[in-house]
Amino acid sequence: MSLKQTLKKAQQIERQLERQNVTGVQHSLGTVKARNYLALDPLLKKGGIHEKEDIDIVRKKRRRETKQQLRQTDWLSE
């Protein structure tokens, strides 16, 4: 759902709630709480470089780099 669609949906819900409040229509379980659909937008969630790196991933990366360095060294010339 794009940002534009999310805002449009939020406005529709707000209008429906206003109409219900004006007409006095109430649900049997109470009033419906309006959701903030903008907060659920994927663009606003964590991701990419801001995500916390897992320790296992860091160890794997370090180990791979070490192996590459060891392969590049010339052991016979020493």
Results as ranks from 00 to 15, higher is better:
Ser2Trp: 00
Ser2Met: 02
Leu3Tyr: 14
Leu3Ala: 14
Leu3Met: 13
Gln5Thr: 04
Gln5Lys: 12
Thr6Phe: 00
Leu7Val: 13
Lys8Asp: 02
Lys9Ala: 07
Lys9His: 03
Ala10Tyr: 01
Ile13Thr: 07
Ile13Ser: 02
Glu14Gly: 11
Glu14Asn: 10
Glu14Ile: 06
Gln16Phe: 08
Gln16Trp: 05
Gln16Pro: 00
Leu17Ile: 09
Arg19Pro: 00
Arg19Lys: 11
Asn21Val: 02
Asn21Cys: 04
Val22Asp: 04
Val22Lys: 11
Thr23Gln: 05
Gly24Phe: 02
Val25Ser: 15
Gln26Thr: 14
His27Ala: 12
His27Met: 14
Ser28Ile: 13
Ser28Arg: 15
Leu29Val: 11
Leu29Ala: 12
Gly30His: 02
Gly30Asp: 03
Val32Cys: 11
Val32His: 13
Lys33Cys: 01
Lys33Gln: 09
Ala34Ile: 06
Ala34Pro: 08
Ala34Leu: 07
Asn36Phe: 04
Tyr37His: 07
Leu38Met: 04
Ala39Trp: 02
Leu40Pro: 00
Asp41Trp: 08
Pro42Trp: 05
Leu43Asp: 08
Leu44Met: 14
Lys45Glu: 04
Gly47Asn: 04
Gly48Ser: 10
Gly48His: 05
Ile49Tyr: 06
His50Ile: 07
Glu51Leu: 12
Glu51Thr: 08
Lys52Thr: 09
Asp54Val: 15
Ile57Phe: 13
Val58Gln: 11
Lys61Ser: 06
Lys61Val: 06
Arg62Asp: 02
Arg63Cys: 03
Arg63Pro: 00
Arg63Trp: 05
Arg64Gly: 00
Glu65Met: 10
Glu65Tyr: 06
Glu65Cys: 04
Glu65Ala: 12
Lys67Leu: 15
Gln69Cys: 03
Leu70Asn: 08
Gln72Pro: 00
Asp74Ser: 11
Trp75Gln: 02
Leu76Tyr: 12
Ser77Leu: 10
Glu78Pro: 00
Glu78Thr: 03
